[in-house]
């Protein structure tokens, strides 16, 4: 049977990994290729690269990064950030990424999901959803632009919408939990899992290895994504997977 995936996420700006990656023993902590190899060796099941470059030049550099990473990495990886068109997707996929992740662009123009799915297949299409609990709505509301802009979408409605348009996977980030380091948002994760039939990656809130057991025990999440907990070496992919295995969660 299929295993639960552990996915480190790397923020890339102008071709460099940013956001305090603290590793001893790496020649260059900001080098995306070196870091990907490091996580691969640790047993990461997949990687996500988020391009946070603001400039056109930075985006072009990202394509080079993708090409280099694809040349060394023997596990799948997803690239998100700034992908606005089928052409953008093609450029990233031809450079060697396995999947592209859409966020703001998908909310702006949901047809983009189906266009991408038609060209490249649903297995390439990840839709990243940033959700925050809204008292008035009595549910979670979708935000775009890195969590700055609220939309009218309620999370289950949006999740169903993106899947009907050809999303093959959902990367679900809890804005309430993100950075809080006290665990994944179990209610949100299970709510979305109940709404759709594609794999769901839980993201936001990982603070300790126990949090990963929780999200897999208490929800039907297929994968869990984390950034700082791995970058700051608070735990490692290896440790998390060993702990999961000990607790009876199926991992690679």
């Amino acid at each position: 049977m299929i295993t639960k995936r552990i996915i480190p996420c790397l923020d890339v700006q102008e071709g460099r990994v940013v956001k305090g990656v603290q590793f001893v023993g790496l020649r260059d902590a900001g080098d995306p290729v070196e870091l990907s190899t490091f996580y691969d060796e640790q047993g990461a099941d997949e990687l996500v690269f988020l391009d946070i470059s603001a400039s056109h030049e930075g985006r072009k550099t990202m394509v080079e990064v993708v090409r280099e990473v694809a040349g060394t990495l023997a596990i799948p990886f997803t690239v998100g950030g700034g992908i606005n068109s089928v052409d953008d997707m093609r450029t990233i996929l031809l450079a060697g990424a396995d999947k592209v992740s859409l966020n703001t662009a998908a909310v702006k123009r949901p047809e983009l999901i189906s266009e991408g799915a038609d060209y490249f297949g649903v297995q390439c299409m990840v839709v990243a959803i940033d959700a925050k609990y809204d008292e008035n709505l009595g549910s979670w509301r979708i935000y775009t632009h890195g969590g700055r802009t609220p939309t009218d979408w309620e999370v289950t409605d949006w999740a169903k919408e993106v899947v009907s348009r050809g999303a093959g996977e959902i990367l679900l980030t809890s804005m309430d939990q993100d950075g809080a380091k006290n665990g994944f948002d179990l209610a949100l994760t299970e709510t979305v899992n109940n709404a759709v039939s594609v794999p769901v990656i839980a993201s936001g809130g990982a603070g300790a290895k126990e949090d990963f057991v929780d999200v897999f025990d208490k929800t039907r999440a297929d994968a869990a994504l984390a950034a700082s907990i791995f970058h700051y070496k608070e735990t490692s992919v290896e440790e998390v997977k060993k702990y999961l295995r000990d607790k009876g969660v199926r991992v690679r």
């Binding site: 049977m1 299929i2 295993t3 995936r5 099941d45 649903v122 297995q123 093959g168 996977e169 039939s197 594609v198 794999p199 297929d222 994968a223 690679r252």
Partner: peptide, 12 residues
């Protein structure tokens, strides 16, 4: 039986 499609991930 409700299960996830695509079959995506690491399998033995």
């Amino acid at each position: 039986v409700s299960y996830k499609v695509p079959h995506m991930g690491w399998n033995k």
